[in-house]
């Protein structure tokens, strides 16, 4: 996406809802910035993929879902866990590999699970969780509930066989599943147009006779509305939808990768930052008179305090006990 469309006016009756979206996006932003710092200090190990720039997608989409809907994500998933309501301290502690973390220090940045909130992972093999999400859709259909299974994945996963196999079966069997492709344009350092014959991800839905939508992924309200429509279709008619959210990541693929360089220019990055999803919602709130600069500054300081507390908690928490090394390999 290159140009922001003219933003629609806000509905004064929904101020609280907008504030919630704003707060969640800012929480994700500040959390990821802090995680980046901690990674640079060597407190977080392994691969760590930050979400900065893409906040509108996870926050907007998850706000359109019910608590009993199942969520599956790739390895760039801190934001989705936070948006689903996992405490920041548990997510941070997981990044630190501590026993108080979401996955008790066994998963790390790429494998955050919160079963109590139906947040079913953090999957780190590109595309592998697409069929898994459809499996939850299959279970929902078997049990005749009105839940929805939702799968977030990057545009690079679209070239994987599992994406096509799964879309075929999800459409064939009418599985209540929403596939949200977060198209941030680059699979690591390879631009989508250098990897895919079809640039418009949503077009793939045609091959499988599936509903689809392309949406401005830098507009939290747009992604929210699109997800709401897809969820309705899934609940009412048990039909899957493919949503392509066009977004942009500000950071490198992971903390170990360059932010720009051979594969994209600094200028492109700066240009995209002008479409920042948080700034955009902020402007709209101020323009509509639904918030003052003071209100928003308070949100920021609240969020910062929450992130600082999470960091402190993660630092102070104990490592998993060595005698628990073999815990949960199998269930007896």
């Amino acid at each position: 996406m290159t140009q922001a469309k003219a933003d629609t006016a806000l509905d004064a009756g929904r101020a609280e809802f907008y504030h919630d979206l704003y707060r969640k996006m800012l929480l994700v932003r500040r959390f990821e910035e802090k995680a980046g710092e901690a990674y640079a200090q060597g407190k977080i190990g392994g691969f760590c993929h930050l979400y900065i720039g893409q906040e509108a997608v996870a926050v907007g989409a998850i706000a359109a879902l019910r608590d009993d809907d199942y969520l599956f994500t790739s390895y760039r998933e801190h934001a989705h866990a936070l948006a689903r309501g996992s405490p920041a301290r548990e997510v941070m502690a997981e990044l630190f590999g501590k026993v108080t973390g979401s996955s008790k220090g066994r998963g790390g940045s790429m494998h955050i699970f919160d079963a109590g909130r139906n947040f079913l992972g953090g999957h780190a093999i590109v595309g592998s969780h697409i069929p898994i999400a459809a499996g939850a859709g299959f279970a929902i259909k078997s049990r005749h509930t009105t839940q929805v299974a939702v799968c977030f994945f990057g545009e690079a996963a679209v070239n994987i066989g599992a994406f096509h196999e799964t879309l075929n079966m999800a459409a064939l069997w009418k599985l209540p599943t929403i596939f949200i492709c977060e198209n941030n344009r680059y699979g690591m350092g390879t631009a989508l147009d250098r990897a895919a014959a079809v640039y418009d991800v949503a077009h793939h839905a045609c091959s499988y006779d599936m509903a689809s939508e392309t949406v401005d992924g830098m507009d939290v309200l747009a992604i929210h509305e699109a997800t709401k429509r897809a969820a309705h279709l899934a609940r009412a008619e048990q039909l899957p939808t493919l949503i392509e959210a066009r977004t942009y990541r500000y950071m490198g693929h992971s903390m170990a990768d360059p932010i720009h360089g051979h594969y994209r220019t600094k200028e492109e990055l700066e240009e995209q930052k002008k479409l920042d999803p948080i700034d955009r919602l902020e402007r709209r709130l101020l323009d509509a008179g639904l918030a003052t600069e003071g209100d928003l500054a308070t949100v920021d300081s609240d969020v910062m305090a929450e992130v600082e507390e999470a960091l402190e908690f993660a630092e102070q928490s104990p490592d998993p006990a060595p005698e628990d090394l073999y815990l949960n390999v199998c269930r007896d």
């Binding site: 199942y70 599956f72 079913l120 592998s128 969780h129 697409i130 069929p131 898994i132 999400a133 459809a134 499996g135 939850a136 859709g137 299959f138 279970a139 929902i140 259909k141 078997s142 299974a149 066989g161 599992a162 196999e165 799964t166 075929n168 079966m169 064939l172 069997w173």
Partner: peptide, 25 residues
């Protein structure tokens, strides 16, 4: 619904099984 014929797509019907098992099937 309980005896399900699949297309020839081993990777993904195995994955669908995994996802269904994760939510209690």
């Amino acid at each position: 619904h309980r005896v399900v014929d699949t297309p020839i797509a081993e990777l993904s019907f195995a994955g669908i099984g995994v996802g269904a098992a994760m939510v209690g099937m």
